[in-house]
Amino acid sequence: MVAVALVATVTQQAFAHTQLYNVAIGTTVYDKYEYIQPVVGPRLSPVADFTQKEIRCRNTDGSSLPNSPYLSVKAGTTFSVNWHHYNASLQDNMVSPSHRGPCMIYLGKVTPSPDDIQWFKIYELGFNKETNLWCSDVARNNHGKVDVVIPKDLEDGNYLLRTELLALHKAAAPMGAQFYPNCVQITITGSNNKFLTPPPAYVKFPGEYQPNGKGILYDIRTDKGLTYVIPGPVVYPPVQNPS
């Protein structure tokens, strides 16, 4: 009985978590994990310490992988990311309803050293007071899919597109917030080869998220999203994200 209970607990914990399963451009849906950087350890587990390098891409490096392909994406294109557990079936929910919180998507132009990557945010969705839904709820209701527009005013080149789901159910305690980042290797083409003025707000990972930071140390059960502020910088201005 103890063994059965332990297996059930582990299974429930696994299905509570999530991963970036695949990506899509329009009607072209790419294969499982295609262009997505591998993670270290269990694919569904959150980053254990979000002040360390694993916060970049859920791996210990977070750099580009020279022997792995990049997906060519035209600037201005609507790009879809899909979170799931183990497969893309309708029965495979992206995350447990208890793991509520915001979604963020960043871009960082590839540099020789991953420590030098400057990240800027191109998408965020937190809590909607009118619908009482978090981004995690919206994405789960959309079978794990979130759409983002790749900005037109960038420089062409190789980028890491960093997706992130933040679960707040344990965030009332320091280091209780659960981050689920993944990185996609893309090559942006057809842009205006410039950033608008003012330039995007750059951040570094690790460094941007701190245990007592805004939107990270947060009691979701007491506040219920009413005063929640999404962590990280402001979204880069030229993006008009789909609703």
Rank of each mutant, 00 (worst) to 15 (best):
M1H: 14
V4Q: 15
Q12S: 14
Q13R: 12
A14Y: 07
A14E: 14
F15E: 02
Q19E: 15
L20R: 01
Y21C: 09
V23T: 14
V23F: 15
A24G: 03
T28R: 15
Y33A: 14
E34I: 05
E34M: 10
V39E: 11
G41E: 08
V47T: 14
A48C: 09
D49I: 05
F50M: 07
F50T: 00
F50C: 05
Q52F: 01
K53R: 15
E54K: 07
E54V: 05
R56T: 12
R56P: 13
R58T: 04
G62H: 07
S64G: 08
Y70N: 10
L71I: 06
S72C: 04
S72I: 13
S72H: 11
V73I: 14
T78W: 03
N87H: 12
S89W: 01
N93L: 10
M94C: 13
M94T: 05
V95Q: 08
G101A: 01
C103P: 02
M104T: 04
I105Y: 02
Y106P: 06
L107R: 00
K109N: 06
D115N: 14
Q118G: 11
Y123E: 03
L125I: 03
K129W: 02
K129F: 06
E130G: 12
C135Q: 06
V138E: 01
V138T: 10
A139G: 01
R140K: 13
N141C: 06
H143R: 14
V146D: 00
D153N: 15
E155T: 13
E155H: 15
N158D: 15
L160G: 01
T163R: 02
E164D: 04
L165Q: 09
A171M: 08
A172W: 13
A172C: 05
G176I: 01
F179W: 09
Y180P: 08
Y180L: 04
P181F: 02
P181G: 00
V184G: 04
V184Q: 01
I186S: 10
I186W: 06
T187F: 11
N192G: 05
N193V: 10
N193W: 05
F195E: 01
A201T: 14
V203D: 04
K204N: 12
F205M: 13
P206I: 03
E208H: 10
Q210D: 09
I216L: 04
I216Y: 00
D219G: 00
R221K: 14
T222S: 11
T222K: 14
D223C: 07
K224Q: 12
G225A: 06
L226N: 14
V229M: 08
I230V: 14
V234E: 15
V235R: 00
P237E: 05
P238G: 08
Q240M: 15
N241P: 07
